[in-house]
Design a binder for these strands. Structure first.
Length: 422
RNA sequence: GUGGGCGUAGCUCAGCUGGUUAGAGUGCCAGGUUGUGGCCCUGGAGGUCGUGGGUUCGAACCCCAUCGCUCACCCCA
């Protein structure tokens, strides 16, 4: 019997879970404000969806998916990212009415079987959005504004927003050829990885971190200079919109991304102190994806962001607020007669919305006071033999230490005035 | 998949060149008032020293293997 969670997974215990809830609420809130509706798709899909959607040659599909057969011998995969499922649901539920747009978001666990390390897990939580049905650059700008403002709201003020356009099936092949032509003579000097990439996916050479590879690609032609008219003007308009909205960004012509489906706009948001896993979120436009997944040709753009990394940054910078989950009241019975009064009282108070704790182990008063203190209860109510006889409860203010005897029947009003009155 | 670091109490860690019953802090439980928390004091519970093998009179310590965790490369969120 293994008594530990599988590699790359973790348990969220109550104290941390409440911090997650806090963040999740912030996420739901901003998506509402920007007009995105939540979609909850299954956590597993037919393997084929990811193979076709993400791309057969990506690392994710090649070696990082949790794939297994179900009883009916169907190949099933735990979702490694969110976009493919959203696109599938979009097609399946016919959200693509003529002229209609769908703005959808998700939040939930994703699965990739890679070696875990700082800020990277095998089961991890991503949130993201997909805007389907418009190729207007305003959609791109809206998505970027959303993520930037989200992180800003949380107090992250040194965002590094990287922006690029990687063209479309019209103009990218020509750039690709130019790249290969330009780099082929230098192939022998490149890292083994890049030598392989040169034929298969030369754009990825641009973001190789290897120093010599960087040098070799230092003087290559920039993709932003070879975009077709359509891509060029799209990019230009996007930049204008961002400028007008006060969103700071940096054009990074070396920014390319791991998935095959991206077209035109790609972006990444970094936060300075994340170390090796420095991307807070990333995304881009994918005008061919819906069609590739079996839907009508529909343009789209989206992003995905990691929760664990966001949490890391917020914690490192002490931007997580203290979450007050202290009980309003701790009820301490002494003896069985008192328990018979306190137990139902406790239940009734909770039903009217108070956060109430009580002893369930038969501890001494001293131990109960201690427990009340540790839980941070604002008030403690004691009922012993004396109080039982007269139908009273001794209320102690845990902050000031003041105590007063009140009627049990009057407890509700007492709580109202003491806890909500001031 | 490749390389580095680390596995001792629930948690954070000591444990000197191998030497008796393995320690501290914190947390937990109880007591110091017979019905009162925080501070303080006392006591208690809690450890297959990751696991297996080897060296030795003797191993938490040395050697080998193995598992796990972790960081980095790769890739990504």
């Amino acid at each position: 019997m293994k008594t530990h969670a599988p590699k790359g997974t973790y348990d969220l215990l109550p104290q941390n879970a409440s911090r997650w809830r806090y963040l999740e609420e912030k996420i739901h809130k901003i998506f509402r404000e920007y007009g995105f509706g939540e979609v909850r798709t299954p956590i597993f899909e037919h393997t084929e969806l990811f193979q076709r959607g993400i791309g057969e040659t990506t690392d994710i599909v090649e070696k990082e998916m949790f794939t297994f057969s179900d009883r009916g011998d169907r190949s099933i995969t735990l979702r490694p990212e969110g976009t493919a499922s959203i696109v599938r649901a979009f097609i399946e539920h016919n959200m693509a009415g003529p002229g209609a747009m769908a703005k959808l978001y998700y939040l939930g666990p994703m699965f990739r079987c890679e070696a875990p390390q700082a800020g990277r897990y095998r089961q991890f939580v991503q949130f993201g959005a997909e805007a389907l049905g418009s190729n207007d650059p305003r959609v791109d700008a809206e998505i970027i504004a959303l993520v930037v403002n989200f992180y800003r709201r949380l107090g992250i003020d040194d965002l590094d927003v990287n922006l690029n356009s990687i063209g479309c099936p019209e103009c990218r092949p020509a750039y690709r050829e130019r790249l290969i032509e330009h780099l082929k003579p230098k192939a022998s000097q490149m890292c083994p990885n890049c030598q392989r990439r040169l034929e298969r996916n030369p754009l990825r050479l641009l973001d190789c971190k290897n120093a010599t590879c960087q040098q070799l690609t230092a003087d290559i032609p920039l993709i932003t200079e070879t975009l077709c008219d359509d891509c060029g003007s799209h990019f230009e308009k996007l930049r204008q919109l961002l400028d007008l909205s006060g969103i700071h960004y940096r054009i990074n012509p070396r920014l390319v991304r791991g998935f095959d489906y991206y077209t035109k706009t790609v972006f990444e948001v970094l936060a300075g102190d994340l170390g090796a896993q420095n991307a807070l979120c990333g995304g881009g436009r994918y005008d061919g994806l819906v069609e590739m997944c079996g839907g009508k040709p529909t343009p789209g753009i989206g992003f995905a962001a990691g929760m664990e990394r966001l949490m890391m940054v917020l914690e490192a910078r002490q931007l997580m607020p203290e979450i007050d989950e202290r009980p309003h009241l701790y009820l301490a019975p002494l003896g069985e007669e008192a328990q018979k009064i306190i137990f139902p009282l406790c239940i009734r108070l909770r039903e009217s919305g108070w956060i109430v704790e009580t002893d369930l182990q038969g501890k001494s008063l001293k131990a109960q006071m201690k427990a009340a203190d540790k839980l941070g209860a604002r008030l403690t109510g004691v009922i012993g033999e004396d109080e039982c006889r007269v139908g009273k409860i001794l209320m102690r203010n845990m902050e000031t230490g003041e105590q007063e005897l009140i009627d049990v029947a009057a407890l509700s009003e007492y709580l109202q005035t003491v806890l909500r009155g001031s």
